[in-house]
């Protein structure tokens, strides 16, 4: 049963240089309690999509032109469109029903406020806890995300934490108000591999304990393979392939997905002499897309690809792709 259904989301940025077509019709749904991985290169629109949902983009220059984002509550009985909420309703959702873990914890946290108060702030705002209760709960949360000496650490400022610990604080804030959905926007990209492994394990554990639905944004196909149930591949503001995780890695259909997987060197396993690279670079988002956006780099492109925009079609159960092939 879906908890979130995004339909045909279109977001553009109106800049001096022209209109940036950041999202050109993104549709996907998120099931209760699943981890959906969203992968794509920089500029593919993965973060913009999430920020559009929660109205975190600066407007202007951004404008959400079209689309729906239905958020289901009470077992699917009630639904609200996140994009048409009033300011007050949006505040209730943001940080309450939907938690957000940002990539750069140092700039996402307030540098002149103790981490304890930052966690407590959202508890008081969303759950109406008293200051005393909020403090109590904040310490519990810090312990829960694996910060040693939580009682003392409550009074520390963000700069007193290491990168991995700061990311744990971010996670504590994201899960503080018992959200239904947590959006993790490249939560481990800035971290070293050994710390990344710790954070991945932590989020997985919390997801199971709290039965969260998680949207995990990353450009690392390795991380996604280990954590996601389903994967959405984005390219130039379009979802180009959505599939169950095993299906995607074993039978990638879209030439872009194939190229991405081919570009990875294998650890331990088979390794050819050369990496298969995708020639060229992603398209200029200033141009209005008229046909498949991967056509310039696609080794299989034919006439139709240069004239028409393919639809996202189901080619196998739960496996969708946006390609004529």
């Amino acid at each position: 049963m879906p908890i979130l259904e995004v339909k045909n989301l279109v977001t553009r940025f109106y800049t001096i240089e022209g209109v940036v077509h950041a999202l050109n019709g993104v549709s996907f749904d998120l099931e209760e309690g699943e981890i959906l991985g969203i992968v794509g290169e920089s500029g593919s629109g993965k973060s913009v999509a999430m920020m559009s949902l929660l109205n975190l983009l600066p407007m202007p220059p951004a404008r959400i032109e079209r689309g729906k984002a239905l958020f289901y509550e009470n077992g699917g009985q009630d639904s609200v469109d996140l994009l048409t909420l009033t300011k007050a309703e949006r505040r209730r959702v943001r940080g309450g029903k939907i938690g957000y873990i940002f990539q750069d914890a140092l700039s996402a946290l307030n540098p002149v406020m103790t981490v304890g108060r930052q966690i407590g702030e959202s508890l008081m705002e969303h759950l109406g806890l008293s200051g005393e209760d909020a403090k109590h709960r904040a310490v519990e949360l810090l312990e829960h995300v694996g910060i040693p000496g939580a009682e003392k650490r409550y009074y520390n400022y963000p700069h007193q934490f290491s990168g991995g610990m700061r990311q744990r604080v971010m996670i504590a804030i994201a899960i503080a108000c018992d959200p239904k959905i947590v959006i993790a926007d490249e939560p481990t990209t800035a971290l070293d591999v050994t710390v990344q492994a710790q954070i991945v394990e932590l989020i997985k554990r919390l997801q199971e304990e709290l039965r969260l639905a998680v949207i995990w944004i990353t450009h690392d196909l390795g991380v996604v393979a280990g954590i996601a149930d389903r994967v959405l591949v984005m390219y130039a503001g379009y979802p180009v392939e959505i599939s169950l995780v095993d299906d995607l890695y074993n039978n990638p259909v879209h030439p872009y997905t194939k190229g991405l997987l081919g570009a990875l060197p294998g650890i331990g396993g088979k390794r050819a002499g050369r990496l298969e690279s995708i020639e060229g670079a992603p398209p200029d988002l200033l141009a209005k897309p008229k046909h498949c956006q991967f056509v310039w780099r696609c080794p299989y492109a034919f006439d139709r690809c240069r004239n028409e925009m393919p639809e996202l079609v189901e080619i196998a159960p739960k496996h969708y792709t946006k390609c004529f092939l």
Partner: peptide, 22 residues
Amino acid sequence: SSAPFPDPALERKRKRITLSGE
């Protein structure tokens, strides 16, 4: 063992040594 590997089946059965601390 911490480096993620782009193969879901392998990732699931892989044992990891997760280092504590930083």
